[in-house]
Design a protein around this nucleic acid. Sequence first.
DNA 1: AAAAAAT
Length: 522
Amino acid sequence: MFADIPTADATVQLDTGFAALGLSEPVLKALVEKGYTTPTPIQEQAIPIVLMGRDVLGCAQTGTGKTAGFTLPMLDILSGSRARARMPRSLILEPTRELALQVAENFVQYGKHLKLTHALLIGGESMSEQKEVLTRGVDVLIATPGRLIDIFERGGLLLSDVRVLVIDEADRMLDMGFIPDVERIVAMLPPLRQTLFFSATMAPEIKRLADAFLSNPKEISVSKPASVATTITEGLALVATHDKREALRRLVRTEDVQNALIFCNRKRDVDILYKSLTRHKFSAGALHGDMPQSARFATLEKFKAGEIRLLVCSDVAARGIDIGGLSHVFNFDVPHHAEDYVHRIGRTGRAGLEGRALTLATPEDRLAVEAIQKLTGHAIPPLAVEGLDPVDWAEVDSRGRRRSRGGKGASPPRAEKASKSAAPRRVEAAVQPAVDEMQLKATRQDPRRSSERMRGDRRTDTAREPRRDREMRGLENRDSVIGFGADIPAFMQIRRRTAVVRMETPSRNEGGDHNDGTEIAA
DNA sequence: AAAAAAT
């Protein structure tokens, strides 16, 4: 322990890269004890600015060290004085309960040598307990929007003393329809305050919010440095609907799965698949938004600790939580929104190591797969499941009905039988989200709540392929797609040469091609 | 057609 180290050495010990950023001794001490000595680029840039009291507009995603980038300086800002009852001095808004909990854990860890208090205001847990903590006075309030507004309206909270506001993951807030809530909350805060605003992307709607909330902000933009760029190998297994669970089990057995998220589209299917996997003796857990909060946190902890190897989940885990270092992501269901595919598979790919993102698709999923491929700009390489016959998509129409065979436009004869060991194509860092989300947001700038959006025009712009039927028949250019013989579905061939995409960090200032992964635009 | 977040 640190306490055992002689004082002279302790001074040397504390003299890490963080000390140069102006953090106080108690915070540095906590960092050393956690074993952190070198700040990440965003920490290096953000910490001095936050300590200065300036507003920050941060373009950064999870995994960049963003959370410590604002918690560390906030601890120092707040450590000067004490909070009064029901009047928190800082507020951190998070889109999901899991992220809120993670931030709270950060505060506890880094603030262990300071006498600061925090409250975690999230749904699904007893409100009376949270109110009690508030009454005692808290320095840091970490909250999801719904519960915060609820408690505020019940009079359990005064926000007039909030000096520092953090809006984290603003783009996720937008996706989840929280922006009206966030605007309401910000309106309750004193106008004279420091605001830190973070988002993985800066879509126009996000930019509009930032302009409204921030005054003269310092813009900070970072992405993961190229050296830790991950490699994600994608694969698409075409299976019959009744074979899906069997196919998944076979893939899990044949792949070198360390730990994996398995995504389903529906919560009830999460439950069903979880039970099925457990029956088949797999180490599995389940996670979706209808589960009790305690179970959500407990399962997540077990999964992170390696006690559970497979986590069956809904899209709550696609964006709402931060789990690093996955060897695999499985899409048990093809996501209905192409953007969700990118978010899901972006969960795999460990720093410098290979991650595999494998999707099970049935004939009914064809349109959804086409939409994904249109969005990512490359075909997902086909993957054969050992011991299962691949489904021939050419014989099924988009709604999964069998086409009549032997007629005029019948499929060409098969040249070869499917190979059993098709290897998925390697995709270099196909999902560095900083870039992909930029593309995504371009298609999603509608400020309305997602439920409204759904009913509106969004559905009509899903990839529609008028030439589809023609292309399903006579196919050209059927080189090197393993596992399909001559019957390669047309959509698998679109722009295949773009399948290898080397991701570059987008530069804030157009034309600036100097980019080492860290960059400040003033 | 579904998921998240407030009850």
